[in-house]
Design a protein around this nucleic acid. Structure first.
Lengths: 241, 241
DNA sequence: TGGGTGTATTTTGGATACAATGGACTGTGA
DNA sequence: TCACAGTCCATTGTATCCAAAATACACCCA
């Protein structure tokens, strides 16, 4: 690892030394992974010392990762009590879905206005990879590919701010959704294909409608037939430790 | 400058808070204040040690505050180089304005659908306070009231997620705007009043249009008459330290 | 003179140490 | 049995310490 520090002038022949990623970055990513994959339950108390030991690092990078997780809504930090995995309420999930709908409709519109043939092909390839993951029953892989799809879509849309907000919101939606709702990976892929078609046609309104339909079906799947939301069982009150 | 969390009797730049608040919170707030008020210039290197000394705390809370500032787009953290005040590009500001427009139109729509007479009165009172601040030429106070107005509006709209995203985006827009654009506080107040009228009438579309007009006029003010954006003088390349 | 090199200084990244807070527990008294 | 007080302990908040990385700069040699 301790590579030459002096002759960094020629970076053409030598593989560019991959910059050592700060520990907090690695910790952040593995913790998001943990939360999203269900390795941590809502309300769970995240003890810095334990996390540090499990990850083999000191408390410092763990704390910094926790702060970032809070900024993105994954955990709640209570003063002098530490971090708790965020407990979503049905009300909040509804709000998140509303915002996701707003952001994804706009993303779809922008993408439809500017997508090149190459971009459409790339989206389609990712979507197919998602279908393959569904066929294999590989949920984790599906989720990864799904994230990739939305990232690619955001890139096509060309608004980095929109992309960043969309990613944060969408990942949270998918997390909650995964906690309570029935699987609908297959439908999801079909809906994505519909969206791609609209983008290929350059039809912004149709693309937006497809994005809206996608979110609306998610919302429907999330609610019980009688209209009541499938609940995580938690009212709005603050949770006990 | 020194940061007090509760009752240190020195001269305060930030107002003392009642509950024991973690130092990083106080540090975070005073640093946002610093950036927004123009006390720190884009591209400026924020040396943790210096900040810690200036604020009268150790490096630890400073570092944690910096991470939060990064999450909200105020600073950029480069590995092994530390924090730099974010340098907005014209392109980025345009994207931010697009997103702000999207979020505020939706906020306005929701507010129009659900606003009570009391809420309208409250909004109007805040707006009048803003006009008073303009009359007094008190820009800082105007900014504070403006933030208050948008917070109240978001509360009326009733979507906390939308409110949070909107606040982050809007504050950054206002910061950039303040860096380069001519003052238009007075127009801003008039536009807010227009929005309030639409909300009072319960007319969602008209409210959304008012919100859009508000953002569009901001964008216009931000661009030079010949159509070119007023630039901060920085192209898109990464800035030198 | 100029390009490259070695060294010193600055600054960050991470680890450890210490202080302070809050919850849990236990024991006592009615 | 229950309420309450006092104590203890787990855990967080803050400070300090050390090592690695980056920059700055003087130096050397062609």
């Amino acid at each position: 690892m301790s590579v030459d520090t002096q002759d960094a002038g020629e970076d053409h022949l030598i593989r560019p030394v991959q910059r050592p990623v700060p520990l907090r970055q690695a910790v952040y990513e593995s913790m998001v992974e943990l939360v999203v994959s269900g390795g941590l339950s809502p309300g769970e108390h995240l003890v810095e010392t334990d996390l540090a030991r499990q990850l083999g690092v000191s408390r410092q990078p763990v704390r910094e990762a926790l702060h970032r997780l809070q900024a993105e809504g994954w955990v709640d930090l209570r003063p002098n009590q530490g971090a708790f995995v965020h407990e979503p309420t049905d009300h909040e999930v509804d709000q998140l879905l509303d915002v996701r709908e707003l952001l994804e409709m706009e993303t779809a519109r922008l993408a439809a206005k500017s997508a090149s043939a190459g971009a459409v092909a790339r989206l389609r390839a990712i979507c197919r990879a998602g279908e393959a993951a569904v066929t294999d029953g590989d949920t984790d892989r599906f989720i990864a590919v799904n994230n990739e799809f939305h990232a690619a879509l955001a890139e096509v849309a060309g608004n980095a701010v929109l992309a960043q907000l969309g990613q944060i919101v969408s990942r949270r939606v998918r997390w909650y959704y995964r906690l309570v709702a029935p699987r609908r990976e297959h439908d999801s892929c079909a809906e994505h294909m519909e969206l791609i078609d609209a983008i290929k046609a350059g039809d912004a309104d149709r693309a937006a409608a497809a994005a809206r339909a996608h979110t609306e079906r998610t919302r429907t799947a999330y609610h019980r037939p009688d209209g009541a939301p499938m609940t995580l069982g938690r009212p709005v009150r603050p949770a006990p430790a």
